[in-house]
Simulated scan of single mutants.
Amino acid sequence: MTPPDAPDARWSDLGRPPLNPPALRRALLRPGGLWTSLDVVSATGSTNSDLAARAADLPEGAVLVAEEQTQGRGRLDRRWSAPARSGLFFSVLLKPTEVPAERWGWLPLLTGVAVATALSRSAGVDTALKWPNDLLVTIDGEERKAGGILAERAADGVVVGIGINVSLAEKELPVPGAGSLLLAGAVSTDRDPLLRAVLRSLGQWYTDWRTAGGDPAGSRLQEAYAAGCSTLGRTVRAELPGGRSLTGEAVAVDGDGRLVLATAEGMQEPVGAGDVVHLRPGPGTEVTPGTGE
């Protein structure tokens, strides 16, 4: 893990200034608030791995941000790469010990709602959610993946990693079908206020969910997720563990955060894990937005 940017490297890309850790701490670290520490490093392999390694010794609310991730990853061990200071790459440590463990599976979905809400307000970009953990934006009428979320158990809590492509130009996108806030017409790509907005939104949604004992209905999380989920109402194919696949219309997200598919045979099957591909109307045409999940 590399220390914060050295003075001679801080402004190597004038269009992508570094984050301002002291200002971020002043804005986000409040007595009695969720966020208890905020560290920014210039580069690291994975903020999730780094934070998970220290989770047992840290209080809830630790935030680790990297200006660049060299081994960023998502679901199914897919890789996430982007130029330095072109996005927001960070992880947070949550310890909802008073919430039943079976409800912790809502944390990545909660994070998606919080991020989408914050980006709509602070960047002026409508962000949709692809179940379970992708952040989609619309560019020239096409859905593209601009971010992802990865939640992992660590010590007595959960480390939630978030990656958001902010200022990437078309030529910098890691794979076809990826996107960024810039390409989606963001009114601002200043990462400091974007990060503040995301963390404040996450803190509010998390606090409400925890106060409700993790009840997704009582905290209105289930309702909010369904409202912002672009997967619902579409025909999808779920690639399930063990090599099985299931195709059907995504009709609901149930109380356990699972995607419910209505199949052609008239059955409703919940999907709790797997890779979901959006299918366009018509046979065999797929929407596969984005970088690694």
Rank of each mutant, 00 (worst) to 15 (best):
Pro17Gly: 04
Asp13Pro: 06
Leu129Thr: 06
Trp106Tyr: 03
Ala217Ile: 15
Thr70Ile: 13
Leu246Asp: 03
Pro96Phe: 00
Arg234Cys: 04
Lys95Gln: 15
Glu293Lys: 10
Glu152Leu: 13
Pro241Cys: 14
Glu293Phe: 13
Pro3Trp: 05
Gly213Arg: 05
Met1Leu: 12
Arg153Cys: 02
Leu246Gln: 03
Thr47Lys: 06
Val236Glu: 07
Asp192Trp: 04
Thr70Val: 13
Gly255Asn: 10
Thr44Leu: 15
Trp104Leu: 14
Gly141Pro: 02
Thr263Leu: 09
Glu293Asp: 05
Gly72Thr: 14
Glu239Phe: 09
Leu181Gly: 09
Leu24His: 06
Pro289Ile: 12
Val160Lys: 02
Glu172Asp: 14
Leu110Val: 10
Arg196Tyr: 00
Pro18Met: 08
Val160Tyr: 01
Pro193Lys: 10
Glu152Ala: 09
Leu24Ala: 06
Val63Asp: 04
Thr211Trp: 09
Pro174Lys: 14
Pro18Arg: 14
Arg196Trp: 00
Pro281Leu: 08
Gly177Cys: 09
Ser120Asp: 14
Arg78Glu: 01
Leu181Lys: 09
Ser245Glu: 15
Asp5Phe: 09
Leu24Asp: 04
Gly284Lys: 01
Leu232Met: 10
Thr247Gly: 06
Ser219Gln: 05
Arg280Ile: 00
Pro3Lys: 00
Trp104Pro: 11
Leu195Arg: 13
Ser188Tyr: 03
Thr111Met: 13
Leu14Met: 13
Gly177Trp: 10
Arg78Ala: 01
Val159Leu: 05
Gln204Glu: 14
Ala155Met: 13
Gly218Leu: 11
Ser201Ala: 14
Val287Phe: 00
Gly218Phe: 01
Pro31Ala: 07
Ser180Ile: 11
Ala217Asp: 15
